[in-house]
C-alpha cells in the first residue's frame, strides 16, 4: 500500500514540527526518515499512524484520504522506541492482543489465535519465550516481540519509531540486518525513523533526510551519500571537511564565496607537492580498525583537516605526527555560502 503525504503541516505552539511536507512512499518499500532530534521525523511518523493529528495537509493510503480514520482504523502496525509491550501480559498475550480486541464477528477462534501467535513468534524466532513476561526479556528480544505484535493484525503499513534506538551497538546491528531480511520476506510498506545515518544507509531502500521540519533530500542511500543535495545533508551523513573557496581557489574555478565539501576518505596524500595540492602538518595519527585517521592542520590558516586512509594506503605512505604532507581532494562538492 502506498502512502502519499500532501502539504502536511504540524505546529506545537510556536514550534513548527513539520513545514509543508510532500512525500510519496511506494508500495512495499522500506523508507527511512533520517534527521537529528527535533527535525520532525517522529511527528511525521505519528501523524501517518494516526497517533497525532496534523494542523493541515493530507495523508492518503493507496490514494484514499485517511483523515476520517483514527489510529485503530488505519490498520497500521506501530513499533515504539521503548517497545511499549504490555508489561502485565506474557509474550504470547502481547502478540495475541490485536487479535483478541477485534469485534466479535471478526474475531478468530481460540485455536486460530494460538496458531497465528505461534506462527508470528516463529517468524521472529522467539517461540520459546511465549510464557515469559516482557521484563524477563533482553532489549533485542522485546523489540522483536513488539514487531510480532504489530504484525499480528496483518497491517498494510508498518511504522517504526527509532526501533533500535534503545539497544546497544552490537544488538542493533544484528537486529537491523534481521529487519531488512524480514522486510524482504514480507514486502510490507514500512517507514522507520532514525537519527543514525549508518542505520538508514544500511537498511533502507530510500532515505528521506529531514531538518527543522523540512525535507532536505529524498533518494537512495547511494544518492544521499554520494551526492548530497544540501550542505546539511553533507554534514549530517558522514564526516566532511569544509574548505572556503577564497583560500583554496586552486580547487575550483567558481567565482564568489563558496564552500567546498570534501569527505575525509576522498582526500589523497603525498609526501611531495603535486599539482594543486595543499601543504598541511600532521597533528594526530589514529588507527581505528581497518582505517587510519589523520588530523592535519593547514599551514597558513590553522584550519583542521580530517583525512581517512585505508590501512594499506597508509602503509604505502607512512606519516608521523609533525610531518608535512600534501593533500589533494579526489572529489569535492561546492555550495554557495
Amino acid at each position: 500500500m502506498s502512502i502519499t503525504i500532501q502539504n502536511l503541516n504540524k505546529q506545537f505552539g510556536n514550534f513548527t514540527a513539520l513545514n509543508n511536507i510532500n512525500l510519496e512512499v511506494n508500495s512495499g518499500e522500506l523508507l527511512a526518515l533520517l534527521g537529528p532530534s527535533g527535525c520532525g521525523k517522529t511527528s511525521l511518523l505519528r501523524i501517518i499512524g494516526g497517533l497525532d493529528v496534523q494542523n493541515s495537509g493530507k495523508i492518503l493510503f493507496h490514494g484514499k484520504d485517511v483523515e476520517q480514520r483514527d489510529a485503530r482504523e488505519r490498520n497500521v502496525g506501530f513499533v515504539f522506541q521503548h517497545y511499549a509491550l504490555f508489561r502485565h501480559m506474557t509474550v504470547f498475550e502481547n502478540v495475541a492482543f490485536g487479535l483478541r480486541v477485534k469485534p466479535k464477528k471478526e474475531r478468530h477462534t481460540e485455536t486460530e489465535i494460538k496458531r497465528r501467535v505461534h506462527e508470528l513468534l516463529q517468524l521472529v524466532q522467539l517461540d520459546w519465550l511465549a510464557d515469559r513476561y516482557p521484563a524477563q526479556l533482553s532489549g533485542g528480544q522485546r523489540q522483536r516481540i513488539a514487531l510480532a505484535r504489530a504484525l499480528a493484525v496483518e497491517p498494510q503499513i508498518l511504522l517504526l519509531d527509532e526501533p533500535f534506538g534503545a539497544l546497544d551497538t552490537k544488538v542493533r546491528k544484528e537486529l537491523r540486518r534481521w529487519l531488512r531480511r524480514l522486510h524482504d520476506e514480507l514486502h510490507i510498506t514500512s517507514v522507520f525513523v532514525t537519527h543514525d545515518q549508518e542505520e538508514a544507509l544500511e537498511v533502507a531502500d530510500r532515505i528521506v533526510v529531514m531538518n527543522k521540519g523540512n525535507i532536505e533530500q529524498v533518494g537512495s542511500p547511494d544518492d544521499v551519500y554520494a551526492s548530497p543535495a544540501s550542505p546539511f545533508v553533507y554534514q549530517f551523513i558522514g564526516n566532511v571537511n569544509l574548505f572556503h573557496s577564497r583560500t583554496h581557489a586552486l580547487w575550483t574555478q567558481q567565482q564568489g564565496d563558496a564552500v567546498a565539501y570534501v569527505r575525509p576518505h576522498d582526500i589523497d596524500i603525498s609526501l611531495i607537492p603535486q599539482h594543486s595540492s595543499l601543504p598541511v602538518v600532521v597533528k594526530q595519527v589514529r588507527a581505528i580498525g581497518s582505517v587510519v585517521r589523520l588530523e592535519a592542520v593547514i599551514g597558513h590558516d590553522g584550519e583542521v583537516v580530517e583525512i581517512e586512509l585505508s590501512r594499506e594506503r597508509f602503509n604505502l605512505t607512512p606519516v608521523a605526527v609533525g610531518d608535512e604532507i600534501f593533500i589533494r581532494p579526489r572529489q569535492i562538492k561546492l555550495f554557495e555560502e
Binding site: G49, R72, R74, V76, G77, G98, V101, K102, V153
Partner: peptide
C-alpha cells in the same frame, strides 16, 4: 498508543 494502533477501542 500501542493498544489503540492494534485496534483496541
Amino acid at each position: 498508543e500501542a493498544a489503540v494502533s492494534l485496534g483496541a477501542s
